[in-house]
Design a protein around this nucleic acid. Structure first.
Length: 400
RNA sequence: GGAGGGAUAGCGAAGCGGCCAAACGCGGCAGACUGUAAAUCUGUUGACUAACGUCUUCGAAGGUUCGAAUCCUUCUCCCUCCA
């Protein structure tokens, strides 16, 4: 039932930043194969951020590989821990979330994670950690917290930084890694996956398992994907992300806007291309390579047809400038209308002053002609193409 | 408990009675250049106005003043040192 251990190991180690330890992973794989027992691979999901983006998919893909090799994914929805907020990689304390919001987020999360994981029941187990954490009492908690020393906690880079910069750390945040580690004990994890920012938390899981006389889990951390800006990690709060449920054209466009340098780094982490393929792409035109990347991403979440369509849309909009192909309809009443009002109907700008500004700066075109007079009153005709800024392109339709 | 320091636009950070809708940097938006790249350069970045200008903003509430982000009082939150 299971493939040879060396083969599995090679595949699983690919792309990981750090594995604690490879030897243990090998032993576990050997034992698993001998006993025909799938490994339990844990991944914690934080339901505070319901939009799954490409950054999450790096880890999810690894999880999928485990599944494809016959192992079992155990997805932990951190509904209980979310009430505290994971300090990992954070520079400030997170607000606690109300239970309803957590529930809603968890549902969305699962729905989106399903795009990346095999959701067959024998391949995927979903657990909410309130199931066991919610039952703990103060005595249990104290017992648990006696297992980790303050020194260990303070060693963490996130906390060090915050202490150095006089940023608050809520006491509850010290407990977070313990709770997450306890999850591993309860579900008897063989492997825990995570991003590099999860290393500390995941290692605590090992400690706790050892204390409980379990075989410690193997910790495998994956690289953190950089966001669209190429500077900070991809995250929802920074707004530099591509969400897995975004429409194809959005995905394609966002992917095209990244720098060439970033593109190659994405190539290494995202589409699972062989090095030879990447080398070949590097020899060609960077724009082609970027379009190929963008198309690959769209294809993964929306299918090949959508990828092809998104690519054509992009070419029409920017390369061939066939604006009428990509314009969205904009319904306006027949008759004269101020230019500002007309642009305002697109709903893409926050204030009239804002619109006036882009008009004066030459950002508004009507059928390809720049309109630079904010006072202008025009009489739009059906079929005219209105362009405001780079992205807002509308075809005028007369109503009434 | 004692002594000090701070809270300013999306963020960081100046300003300390009128010239402040508030310097500067980042971010955002637009333009030029391009491969919708990136980098760079230019402009712009509270709302309404064609404009003059008007209105709302500097932790909260009051007050002093012709006039307050700036001074006073109270309150809230944060930090540092001491105990």
């Amino acid at each position: 039932m299971f493939r040879p251990v060396d083969e599995q190991l090679k595949m699983l180690c690919a792309g990981a930043v750090q594995i604690e330890t490879v030897d243990e992973l090998r032993k576990k794989l050997e034992a698993s194969r001998a006993a025909s027992r799938p490994l339990r691979v844990k991944l914690g999901m934080d339901p505070t951020a319901p939009d799954i983006h490409l950054g999450h998919t790096v880890v999810l893909r690894k999880m999928r590989e485990f599944q494809d090799l016959g192992h079992k994914a155990v997805l932990i929805i951190g509904d209980y821990t979310a009430m505290i907020g994971d300090p990992s990689g954070k520079t400030k304390t997170r607000p606690m979330l109300p239970p309803e919001a957590i529930k809603r987020n968890a549902e969305t999360y699962f729905q989106q994670a399903g795009k990346a994981l095999d959701t067959a029941p024998e391949k995927l187990e979903i657990r909410y950690n309130s199931e066991w954490l919610g039952k703990m009492n103060l005595a249990d908690m104290l017992k648990l917290s006696s297992r980790v020393t303050a020194a260990q906690i303070f060693q963490r880079r996130d906390f060090k930084e915050r202490l150095k910069n006089d940023v608050d750390i809520a006491l509850s945040e010290f407990i977070y890694p313990l709770m997450q580690g306890w999850d591993s004990v309860v579900i008897r994890a063989d492997v825990e996956l995570g991003g590099t920012d999860q290393l500390f938390n995941n290692l605590v899981g090992r400690e706790l398992q050892r204390d409980e006389k379990q075989e410690p889990q193997v910790v495998m951390v994956m690289p953190i994907l950089e966001g669209l800006d190429g500077a900070q990690k991809m995250s929802k709060s920074l707004g530099n992300y591509i969400g897995v449920s975004e429409p194809p054209n959005e995905m394609f466009g966002k992917a095209m806007s990244i720098s060439d340098d970033l593109m190659w780094r994405w190539y290494e982490m995202l589409p699972g291309k062989a090095e030879a393929d990447i080398a070949a792409l590097k020899a060609g035109h960077p724009m082609e390579a970027k379009k190929a990347l963008a198309a690959a991403l769209v294809e993964r979440f929306h299918g090949a047809n959508a990828a092809q369509a998104a690519r054509e849309h992009f070419d029409n909009q920017f390369s061939k400038k066939k604006l009428d192909e990509v314009a969205e309809p904009l319904a306006v009443a027949a008759g004269k209308i101020g230019l500002i009002e007309l642009v305002g109907k697109t709903g893409a700008f926050k204030s009239r002053g804002d619109i006036r500004r882009i008009i004066q700066e030459g950002g508004v075109q009507l059928d390809g002609e720049k309109q630079t007079d904010p006072k202008a009153v025009i009489e739009p005709r059906a079929g005219q193409i209105l362009r405001a800024g780079k992205r807002v392109i509308r075809r005028i339709e007369l109503a009434g």
